[in-house]
Design a protein around this nucleic acid. Structure first.
Length: 770
DNA sequence: TAGGCCCGCGTTTTT
DNA sequence: CGCGGGCCTA
């Protein structure tokens, strides 16, 4: 990493040439930018211009000559946020934004620091960063060694515990009783320690370690801490409400004596508690940094009055808040619409038809682009109904989020090959690809190799190299191993002077990996395309290790943004985004708020769910549509649903409620009993008019007796599929994948090329003619 | 070793 | 209902 020479002078000149740093900022924003000395907490409500404040603040500090670009530590949670920040800083200060080397995610900056001092925690600076797949595999090996019943105690759930500990900054010696230590008969701590030991042997760490090792180094070596204090003159933090304990401690350590720390966040948008985020961090900022200035950004530039008021009315029900009152100049606008519907299909139909209407435009309203509209759901299983409907009506849509590129199996396989080339001692990479594609090296053999390596205290690769010299292995296992080692040695040679992407191509060709994928009619082509994309993205890196670092920390690839299509995503994925029109379906007790979440975390989780609802509503600029249903199919079973308590919490003046069926009154009745059973208090008594209107269905609910439940919808049993009813080349519709062409018929299976995904799929379930 | 069958389970997931 | 993991058999 090269450092450009200090050039403060030219930055000031640049600032002089851009006197418009502050024009267009409101007084609070300007104060948040100008208050550069000492601790500052900027409480930035939704849509109040927080990124603008952060970037202008950076520009201001540089323009004033208070620091040089690399002396500013600016941390974000996501790569996307970091990228956006850099781009916007660049617009303000031009090329010197390149020097902002310490603008990045918590993890990428922590990784940089750790690589510099790795030996202090027993790692080499070339350490490998494990993904969760490797993590689970490692735990599995430990569990096997310890004879732990992996049905009762899954490695995955233990990985979750480890994550929680690390989020809290707890190394094995600091874990107290309870909090997961009782795992597998009180062996939690021991297993955690074993896991850490294994990581050290593998010269690897997981995501949590990046920060944890930082804490270790910075607390045990004051001299090193001192160098960072000298280095970072200003510290800026984005989304402070999402910091966990480890990140909090890390920031406390790195904050220089001058306490030039500026944290920006919104306690009402803290939605990652289950990932270890502590809203408390932002709530106690003033206590942590006495004399801190707190600046509230409350002028909202995004939403209309009704939308803001509806969101405010909802979030008011939360107890632990710093409190803000957002306001806007935008007059009027439409009220938030609350729609009761019969079932999930009706809901999807309602949303899709409403979208079509808005897309077409009316006499009073201009047509909306598809990309102006988004559907935000609580959980991804809710997406399916919408996808089906969109496909049926030919509404273009994009699922935002979804399976991530670098987490796809084929991409991980390819990367494992590369990791093995880069460091042949990477046992986890070895284990991943030794029998992919199938080489006849089965589980038994692999286990034997692992055991052998452990006994000898060497890496698996070394063990294999030794073993094939002997006669200890049966020929059936030995022959393919010899073959693999021969290939591997050749690749290793090639790697010395071959471009990384060419090398990968060679490996995947020689190993038969491409052939294996080509043989897979179902999704082989998609996977090959993904590998192609991987190769293309590698071309930008001149060496393998730079690429691998990028892969483990910058786990997203710039994908195409979907063009003009409706967006479909979870509420979590929607944070930081905004849309003119937002649909919020599934506001039913048990779904939103999620039953599971409340079972696990009680009132605290309920408040987080409410913040999620708040985030959802505040994504909308002009129109927000909330809906709930009476009947919903969940995992193939019909269930009666009752409206979410959040519906009742919406202020009636800002909401317009309608119902298709009148069942909502019954829903309200059962909601009472549900609350009773759950021990929650509804925020109105039976006699009061519920907030969404007792006249919802033209019925006075207070006089309603509990009635028989509405008859659930019955779906006709799907016809048993029979391929002989179909012809080659026919256009068919499949419930899950949409429209497609039959390209092959094999026995009772159809191979269909689907239009939306471009994937070929083998279909033996319900298909109807288009 | 590898393919097939059965059982269990099913939020959100920035790095 | 539909998928993935684990177990069993050819």
């Amino acid at each position: 990493m090269t450092t450009s020479p200090p050039n403060v002078q030219s930055i000031s000149q640049m600032a002089a040439a851009h006197p418009d740093f502050f024009t267009g900022l409101n007084p609070e924003q300007e104060a948040a930018v100008r208050t550069v000395q000492g601790p500052v907490l900027v409480l930035a409500g939704a849509g109040t211009g927080k990124t603008r404040v952060l970037t202008t603040r950076i520009a201001h500090i540089l323009a004033q000559g208070l620091a040089r670009p690399w002396e500013i530590l600016c941390v974000t949670f996501t790569n996307k946020a970091a990228r956006e920040m850099r781009e916007r800083a660049q617009k303000l200060i031009g090329a010197s934004a390149e020097g902002l080397q310490n603008l990045g995610t918590f993890h990428s900056i922590a990784a940089q620091i750790l690589r510099r001092h790795a030996e202090l925690v027993g790692l080499k600076s070339s350490f490998n960063i494990l993904d969760d797949d490797d993590q689970v595999r490692l735990l599995k090996a430990i569990f096997e060694q310890e004879n732990i019943d992996q049905k009762r105690y899954t490695p995955k759930s233990f990985a979750w515990h480890i994550d929680q500990w690390k989020n809290k900054g707890l190394t094995p010696d600091k874990v107290k009783g309870g909090e997961g230590s009782e795992f597998a008969g009180n062996r939690g701590v021991k297993l955690y320690q074993m896991y850490q030991d294994r990581l050290r042997i593998l010269n690897a760490c997981d995501f949590g370690d990046l920060l944890l090792h930082n804490l270790d180094i910075l607390t045990r070596h004051p001299d090193i801490l001192e160098t960072y204090h000298r280095k970072f003159k200003y510290v800026l933090v984005d989304e402070y409400q999402d910091t966990n304990v480890a990140q909090y401690l890390w920031l406390r350590l790195l904050t220089p004596a001058s306490r030039n720390l500026c944290c920006v966040g919104d306690d009402d948008q803290s939605i990652y508690g289950w990932r270890g985020a502590e809203v408390d961090n932002i709530l106690k900022f003033e206590r942590d940094y006495p004399g801190a200035k707190v600046i509230r950004l409350e002028r909202n530039y995004r939403s209309t009055r009704h939308i803001l008021a509806a969101a405010a009315g909802l979030i008011k029900a939360n107890t632990a808040r710093l409190g803000k009152t957002l306001f806007t100049d935008q007059e009027g606008g439409e009220k938030v619409q609350v729609q009761g519907l019969w079932d999930g299909a009706a809901e999807a139909q309602f949303v899709a038809e409403d979208m079509e209407r808005l897309h077409k435009g009316t006499r009073d309203a201009n047509p909306r682009k598809w990309s102006d509209m988004a559907v935000l759901v609580r959980a991804s299983f809710q997406m399916r109904a919408f996808e089906e409907r969109f496909v049926m009506l030919q509404i273009p849509y994009t699922v935002v989020g979804g399976p991530r590129f670098f987490e796809r199996a084929e991409i991980r396989d390819a990367i494992a090959y590369l990791r093995l080339i880069q460091s042949p001692d990477d046992d986890l990479a070895f284990e991943r690809i030794i029998n992919v594609p199938k080489r006849g090296i089965g589980d038994a053999t692999v286990q034997k190799l692992l055991q052998q390596a452990r006994l000898a205290g060497v890496s698996v690769m070394t063990a294999v190299r030794d073993l094939i010299q002997t006669d200890e292995l049966p020929a059936r296992a030995k022959t393919p191993l010899v073959g693999f080692m021969r290939d591997f040695t050749r690749w290793l040679d090639l790697s010395k002077d071959m471009q990384a992407n060419v090398l990968l191509d060679t490996i995947l060709t020689d190993s038969g990996y491409y052939d294996m994928q080509r043989a897979d009619k179902t999704s082989g082509q998609t996977r090959l395309d993904n590998l192609k994309e991987l190769g293309d993205s590698m071309a930008a890196f001149d060496d393998l290790s730079a690429f691998l670092e990028h892969v483990s920390l910058v786990m997203d690839l710039e994908r195409d943004n979907g063009g003009d299509s409706v967006r479909l995503m979870t509420l979590h994925a929607a944070k930081g985004l905004e849309f003119p029109v937002v649909y919020l379906p599934g506001w039913e007790e048990g779904i939103f708020p999620s039953q599971r979440s409340m079972d696990e975390g009680g009132l605290k989780s309920l408040e987080e769910e409410r913040r999620l609802a708040y985030v959802g509503i505040t994504r909308a600029r002009e129109q927000a549509r909330i809906s709930f249903v009476a009947n919903r199919q969940v995992y193939g079973r019909w269930t009666n649903q009752i409206p979410s308590r959040f519906v009742d919490e919406l202020p009636i003046d800002n909401v317009e409620a309608t119902s298709q069926t009148g069942y909502a009154s019954q829903g309200w009745q059962s909601q009472q009993s549900r609350w009773d059973r759950a021990g929650y208090e509804p925020n109105y008594t039976k006699k009061e008019k519920p907030a969404y209107g007792g006249d919802l269905a033209g019925v006075d609910m207070s006089r309603l007796e509990p009635k028989a439940r509405p008859t659930p919808h019955r779906q006709p049993a799907p016809a048993k599929p029979s391929a002989k009813n179909f012809k080659l080349g026919e256009r068919v519709f499949h419930m899950k994948f949409g429209y497609g062409l039959i390209v092959e018929i094999e026995g009772n299976k159809l191979i269909v090329n689907f239009e939306t995904s471009g994937d070929k799929k083998v279909i033996d379930s319900f298909v109807e003619r288009a």
